[in-house]
């Protein structure tokens, strides 16, 4: 079976202050339908650029897609017109944003922001529903992300909600139009560990229940282990290793992966500071 999303030999340059740097070197990865895939790497490894390229959020310039293909559901996204590209956003593929404190507009209510997203997603899908029906759907999705009081939450401004609640709102926003692929950019990193664990469990449950494909982008190997069945390791713009998640942890192949695993703090067995790879 072919993958729902398939990135083929993607190379991306960035030009800043007249200097061009290649930040992605022939990156390839597959996200099969209903699969939970992780893309792991440290800051600057190119995972965010990969994600933005998939979502069509790269600003060009400074970015320039030199070569490669991003095939979604049989179509190469890079050959689509802008309008066709936009049409997929939030409907076919959605993003769960990383920082709940800064990813919601501070001056509009949750209901306002969510129903606006839904309104334009509906329009792209050639559907329409009344403002009332939109609110019904907003409340429905909010309760699906285990929000106890959807009416109160939707009437709130972001500042009135806790970090964990805002993160749930961001997940709810991504789910509004039932996308087939969810791209999660380190959700919960900005939260405390307990809340982050809850958020990850919620995300995993939602994805499993609905049979969504998940691409989890993270720097945290713990998150990889919790949320994915297959993992791609990125370093300095290249995919350096890919494997079943269990295999990766039991027998890592590349030196970089080994050092990543060694750098994970442990409660037993003494101190492992790991080594910094060049």
């Amino acid at each position: 079976m072919s993958a729902l999303l398939s990135v083929r030999d993607l190379s991306v340059d960035f030009t800043t202050y007249g200097q061009t740097h290649q930040v992605l070197h022939s990156v390839s990865l597959d996200v099969p339908a209903h699969a939970q895939i992780a893309l792991v790497g440290e800051s600057g490894s190119g995972k965010t650029v990969t994600m933005k390229a998939i979502m069509g959020l790269l600003r060009q310039p400074p970015a320039h897609i030199r070569s490669g293909q991003i095939i979604y559901d049989g179509r190469d996204l890079l050959t689509l017109a802008d309008s066709e590209r936009v049409a997929l956003r939030g409907t076919a593929m959605s993003m769960v944003f990383q920082d709940p404190m800064s990813s919601l507009n501070p001056v509009f209510t949750i209901a306002d922001q969510m129903s606006t997203i839904l309104k334009y997603a509906d329009r792209r899908l050639g559907r329409s529903r009344s403002a009332r029906d939109r609110m019904v759907r907003v409340h429905e999705v909010l309760s699906q992300v285990r929000m106890r009081d959807p009416e109160r939450v939707s009437a709130s401004y972001p500042i009135m909600l806790s970090g964990g609640m805002r993160q749930r709102v961001l997940i709810a926003m991504a789910l509004l139009s039932e996308p087939a692929l969810l791209i999660a950019d380190e959700p919960g990193t900005a939260l405390d560990v307990t809340t982050q664990a809850q958020i990850l469990r919620l995300l995993k449950d939602l994805v499993t229940q609905r049979g969504l494909a998940l691409l989890m982008i993270t720097h945290n190997l713990g998150v990889v282990r919790e949320t994915s069945s297959y993992v791609y390791v990125m370093n300095r713009g290249r995919v350096v290793e890919q494997a079943e998640t269990a295999t990766l942890f039991s027998s890592p192949q590349s030196d970089y992966t080994k050092s990543l695993i060694a750098a994970v703090p442990r409660l037993t067995g003494g101190t492992h500071y790991g080594t910094v790879m060049p």
Binding site: M55, L57, V86, A87, R89, G90, T91, S94, M95, F97, D99, S102, S103, L104, N105, P106, V107, F108, T116, I117, Y120, A121, R124, L170, M173, A174
Partner: peptide, 24 residues
Amino acid sequence: DYIEAARAFGIPEWLRVTKYMLRP
């Protein structure tokens, strides 16, 4: 971030500029 998020959620550009950006 919330402007980039609005873009990723498919909010049209004119609305991002006249509403999501102008009010704050």
